[in-house]
Design a protein around this nucleic acid. Structure first.
Lengths: 336, 336
DNA sequence: TTGTATGCGTTATCAG
DNA sequence: CTGATAACGCATACAA
């Protein structure tokens, strides 16, 4: 791979001059510039981004760490960051953190070694303290889908409680009072918060959610299916189910179907996230829309403005609200 | 961010010594090593990967270019590469090429500027010539889902023709002779090849596929739905449909359902790719399994071995065969 | 307008 | 066992 020296030699100028034309630097003779440009073209010169980052003390890359790539939710997140990266002509540095504190740490570490200064990280397993400490040492680090009390201005998160409330309200408004919940058994706060909001809204309406009506499972289709079977086995009456996410909701629908129950005629189900899947599943899923891609874009722009020293942009608030998307899986209880 | 110098000064040794302990270099006094290690820990030293790459003339990163992140098929591809990257403790450099030659080119260019030497690229819009030229200049560049005649050893691809044949055979074996095809209108070769294989196998069995029974559309659910409606409008008889991919197949099923036709009782449908979606859709999709993640892993390992100068590994062949996954959307014609 | 020289953080080659 | 020192490819202050 040719270097700046090769170009300089070939053009019979100094590397300083070549450097100037590469960077559209000031005061370069038109003739010289044209010739250098031509030669760069000819020999296929590409500026070495690493060397440049080294001397300029500035990385032209945007980092993102997510648990995994194949989950559509995280894919959307990464896609949002990628959008911003492309806009700024920056390289996307992607690291997966899986579902363990140690691998999350390694993922962040890799980015840091690259001297990546702007990065948006999705971490659910490292502690508040550790994350906060990293953040103070890295001005361009912003967290998505997580709230760190000491540095809220560096976080972009969804109001899960509000989401739970909205879901409850939707079910209540449709006349459902015998409710159940299929949630995740992961020990992160999202499931807890969504459930909390769900319960609160129910409580305000004077209806309660019995503990037996809450089933836990792995946050995927199979987990949802299994949990629903367990719920059904308890033989307690319900006409509405709030699922932790769309994948679990898909499992819920399948289990219900297998048990001879119709959705939404016999039971309404509402999911969470509004990933693509919710439109493929039959009946199409009523769900809480989680604007993750938009949030990721804003997070990336926030990170960039933080390292760029730009004024604090217009980010009025970093808390986002989910919205209800009504499709086919929920309906009025009176139809039962 | 502290540098090697900071560590050296703090420890009262030379940077050479620090470098040695960082790299587990030979012959460093136990006491010295321990002290240096401790100090690195204390001040939070992280070796600068850029500087290292510069001096070692070797990048510890793995590149991948795909059209986009949110398509589950490409997400699986990227995930395979990511798996290999993590195994080797390399940073994943991800660039999206969208669906245009110019952006594909830009994506590759970005990786090259990073001096990324091992990369696996999925390109459908740049020409054979341009890609081949890039490849000869970049020993660690391997192409996935594409066949370049001049450098087959640098390509990992699926036998689309065989896939079409297998799909045809499955339908034939189940007694279907009135067939239709819903394919993609993208001007890339995959749709063409799959259709070609489909036709060939049919031909060998003495059944022909009429031109009117072939409908084209965008390779997504909506495209599949619209194309199927167009097909239905023609009022030609068929009991089996071969769809270009699973998304289109999902659209096919929806359109069929809306038209009052039952799958698979009235018509069998088989998709292609076996993405997660195929298990969510009802009825579950019979489809051709495209082992894209496995292929991506092998592609990444091939790329790594190419730059590493390792012996040419065991890659007996770079051509992969799809396999039939029979689920619920296809059945025997006699059941009609 | 152009060239020279210095340094960015590392590794590696030589001497001690 | 350890320390100078010369690259690596590039940007830039300072000269010319």
């Amino acid at each position: 791979m040719p270097t700046i020296k090769d170009v300089a030699k070939e053009a019979g100028v100094s590397i300083a001059t070549v450097s100037r034309v590469v960077n559209n630097g000031p005061k370069v003779g038109d003739a010289t510039r044209a010739r250098v440009l031509q030669i760069m073209q000819d020999i296929g010169y590409r500026p070495n981004a690493n060397a440049r980052a080294l001397v300029m003390q500035k990385e032209a890359s945007l980092g993102v760490v997510i648990p995994e790539l194949t989950d559509p939710f995280y894919a959307s997140l990464a896609s949002g960051v990628d959008t911003v990266a492309r806009q700024h002509n920056m390289q996307l540095l992607l690291s997966t953190g899986l579902i363990e504190a140690s691998t999350e740490r390694a993922a962040i570490e890799l980015l840091l070694q690259r001297r990546c200064d702007a990065m948006i990280v999705h971490s659910k397993f490292m502690s508040d303290d550790e994350l906060t400490e990293l953040a103070v040492a890295t001005p361009g680090m912003v967290f998505i889908n997580r709230y760190l009390p000491d540095i809220p201005e560096r976080c972009i998160w969804l109001d899960n409680i509000a989401g739970g409330k909205l879901a409850a309200r939707h079910l209540l408004v449709n006349g459902h009072t015998n409710l159940a919940c299929i949630t995740s058994d992961y020990s992160i706060d999202d499931p807890m918060l969504r459930l909390q909001g769900f319960k609160e809204e129910l409580g305000e309406a004077g209806v309660s959610l019995r503990e037996e009506a809450i089933e836990y499972g792995a946050p995927g289709q199979l987990g949802g299916e299994l949990a629903t079977q367990a719920l059904l086995a308890k033989n307690i009456p319900f006409t509405g189910i709030f699922a932790y996410n769309d994948s679990m909701a898909a499992g819920v629908i399948k289990a219900l179907h297998d048990a001879g129950l119709k959705v939404p005629q016999d039971v309404s189900v509402v999911g969470f996230d509004d990933v693509l899947l919710s439109r493929y599943v039959r009946p199409q899923l009523s769900t809480m829309r989680y604007p993750i891609e938009r949030m990721a874009i804003n997070a990336a722009e926030l990170a960039l403005s933080l390292v760029g020293g730009h004024p604090s942009e217009l980010h009025s608030t970093n808390k986002y609200l989910p919205t209800l998307v009504k499709r086919e899986s929920s309906s009025n209880a009176s139809l039962s």
